[in-house]
């Protein structure tokens, strides 16, 4: 009886020892097993995502670009991001939102490199500030660090009744001026902080809101390198220590059609050089007969709600 018990106890112990040994060996081998399945749930191997920033930056296009950047942060196969920029900027709130989205992407440890293809001015330049490098071509345009404020005339007209003196315009002329000044300081501070020592322009020189051709921008530190999108992709891959990688081009932001117009872009050939007219912003709260203030980080001067710029 006791001999049987002793034999049974020894057998149980043996099973336990074997199981523990199996667990220990399994734990040792677990990383290899995890690595085997690491990419199995994803479509592609390590990749560099190209996120287009095209056309006027409005709340709608910024949302779409933000969604692309969010996807880049979620998707483990995306190891680096290249911003493919061709935009004259847009509204200040949308540009800020884009800046924060790019900033969040770099904060998540994903290298971001910007490539300006055409123009990366004002709000578009603002948005690409967190990028570690800015690639430009000699003829591309960057800069325009400044803000345009437009405001309604204010006051009550005709049979309107307003409940306070600033209900119409939202504030006095001085307050409006100070608000625009605050936005300028925010923009200039962002650029000087993010560009750091690379920038050879003073705050005052930046505040002129000039645009610079790529070759000039590379010299004065508004941009970093002369090169196209492929050079930018290569740099982004190097920053992410990628040797073998795929390039994933994300969808460009769609300019909404009629109905909820938030921005549109059309090209008309009025002369040899061509003139582009950009409808900047009709916010969701804008409708016929109602003027609302706008703060634009845009290269070009609004003309009757539109922006004309050569290019």
């Amino acid at each position: 009886m006791s001999a049987e018990n002793g034999a049974g106890g020894t057998a149980t112990w043996l099973y336990v020892v074997v199981a523990v040994a199996a667990v220990l060996i399994g734990v040792l081998l677990a990383p290899q097993a995890m690595r085997l399945t690491q990419g199995a749930g994803q479509d592609t191997p390590d990749s560099v995502a190209v996120v287009p920033i095209e056309g006027p930056i409005t709340s709608s296009t910024a949302d779409q670009i933000n969604a692309n950047l969010r996807e880049a942060r979620r998707n483990d196969s995306i190891k680096a991001v290249v911003l493919d920029v061709n935009s004259p900027g847009g509204t200040v709130p949308a540009s800020e939102a884009l800046y924060l989205a790019v900033n969040r992407t770099t904060a998540a440890g994903i290298p971001v490199v910007a490539s300006v293809n055409g123009q990366g001015a004002s709000g578009a330049y603002w948005a690409m500030m967190p990028a570690s490098r800015i690639y430009v071509t000699p003829g591309s345009i960057v800069g325009s660090v400044g803000v345009i404020g437009t405001k309604p005339a204010g006051g009550a007209a005709g049979s309107q009744i307003i409940t306070g003196p600033d209900k119409g315009a939202g504030g006095t002329e001085a307050e409006f001026r100070d608000r625009v000044e605050m936005l300028r300081q925010q923009f200039v501070t962002t650029v000087t902080n993010e560009r750091g020592d690379r920038l050879e322009l003073s705050r005052q020189e930046l505040s002129y809101a000039k645009v610079y051709a790529g070759s000039v921008a590379q010299r004065n530190g508004v941009a970093d390198e002369i090169g196209g999108i492929d050079a930018a992709i290569q740099r982004a891959a190097e920053n992410a220590d990628l040797e073998d990688y795929a390039v994933t081009r994300m969808d460009p932001p769609e300019q909404p059609g009629l109905g909820i117009i938030l921005g549109s872009q059309e090209t008309g050939r009025t002369n040899d050089s061509g003139t582009r007219r950009v409808v900047v912003e009709q916010s969701p709260f804008d409708y016929d007969g109602v003027e609302t203030p706008h703060y634009l980080a845009l290269y070009g001067l609004p003309e009757r709600g539109e922006v004309s710029d050569d290019g």
Partner: peptide, 9 residues
């Protein structure tokens, strides 16, 4: 978000 961090530029 992967590794979200508070932002305060």
């Amino acid at each position: 978000d992967a590794n979200p961090r508070p932002q305060d530029p």
